[in-house]
Design a protein around this nucleic acid. Structure first.
Lengths: 216, 216
DNA sequence: TAGATTGTTAATCGATTAACAATC
DNA sequence: TAGATTGTTAATCGATTAACAATC
């Protein structure tokens, strides 16, 4: 089946599509909470910034989830999308860098709400070692590989200053982590089989600055 | 002149181009620090993930900055890009929501390093009022409009829980802010003349989760 | 059956890349 | 002059949208 092939060929699914799946799931949860049971691409489109066609096309990458003439069963569609995203599973996260931002992430509700849990934290500052923040022990970087293995951690978050970011990434990768979220304002070198996503506040703010300069 | 027209028509410049300008500026600073004075689109390309053609084309949106056969004067090009982005000016920022994440942003070095300064912070929790974090006084939301005007604040950052995000945006917009960075995992409704950028950690993490599920 | 809505093919749009004349 | 590199036009690629047959 066409859709099946695509499932095993993630290269064929664009990052845009994957990002939108998250938003679809989020909206479906909302509709479910409102007591609705059935919806349509048209209704979803009306409550989002995307067209009905785009929603149907995104879903088509993964199979058939609706009934012609009827629409989509909300609970079924949400469960299917969450399965595609893999967010039905709890994911363990290692945090590298427990400064300002890192500490905040340790208590950040959004992570927990979305089934991600920081279970280990690392910092190069000896003063922080053996400190506990939000039930998470701060460890030496040398302990990372061992902890990642023993705790079966799948995702790394880099929250160190820009100077140490590449080193932090290398450490995560060498300990077997294949998915990393980087907050340092730098484009890090990554092996092809590792997925790196950047959250780059300076780029976002400079984009806002551009808008302020040029908007009429 | 073609380039001049584009400068006054920001709709014609894609967000991708603007984002890349930030990265070009960042790399040029690095090359300058290395003592180089001249570079080429080829050299820039070799040190980034973008092609030489794309770099030249991005720059072409704004004018002509190089010499054929020679390349680009690094300091001149960097100064030109920074001017286009408007990052030669210091931008004042208002922070709405001084929880976990908000507090971290108040001390976040990246903002300062890129010429953005949080000069006022707001929270709906009375317990936080008149507290001072990193030299910034935490105020009542009712004081926002007055403060934005008197301090000439241009950018807003939303770091409140998702339930309060739309209200926070409305408050910022009604006080005249036209550029907003939103950390809440929600797509907020915005007037067309206001630029909203989302930093949505749950989408990034779910994207990583998708990769872990589907990568071979 | 008539109306609604899917899944998918074909058309369009925009962004990226290749190619090259201009020129230092 | 010969070699290098820009700025820009033309070609390609990928993503979005329009249109519609299938079907509930």
């Amino acid at each position: 089946m066409q859709a099946r092939r695509l499932i095993n060929n993630p290269e064929a699914v664009s990052e845009g599509t994957v990002n939108r799946l998250s938003l679809y799931s989020r909206l479906l949860a909302l509709l479910e909470a409102e007591g609705l049971t059935v919806t349509s691409s048209k209704e979803l489109s009306d409550r989002m910034q995307f067209t009905a066609t785009q929603i149907r096309r995104d879903l088509a990458c993964f199979g058939q989830f609706g009934k012609r003439g009827i629409g989509y069963q909300i609970s079924d569609l949400k469960r299917a999308i969450d399965k595609i995203l893999g967010v039905h599973l709890r994911r363990k996260v290692a945090l590298v860098g427990v400064g300002n931002l890192g500490s905040a992430l340790l208590g950040y509700r959004v992570l927990r709400d979305h089934n991600f849990e920081i279970v280990a934290a690392f910092d190069s500052d000896p003063q922080k070692w053996s400190l506990v923040i939000n039930n998470v022990l701060i460890q030496k970087p040398e302990e990372l590989t061992e902890t990642v293995k023993s705790q079966q951690i799948e995702i790394g978050i880099i929250a160190v200053p820009v100077e140490g970011a590449q080193k932090a990434l290398n450490l995560l990768v060498s300990s077997g982590i294949r998915a990393v979220l980087n907050f340092a304002p730098a484009r890090l070198a990554t092996p092809r089989n590792v997925q790196l996503r950047n959250v780059d506040l300076s780029i976002e703010l400079e984009g806002l600055s551009y808008f302020l300069e040029h908007e009429v």
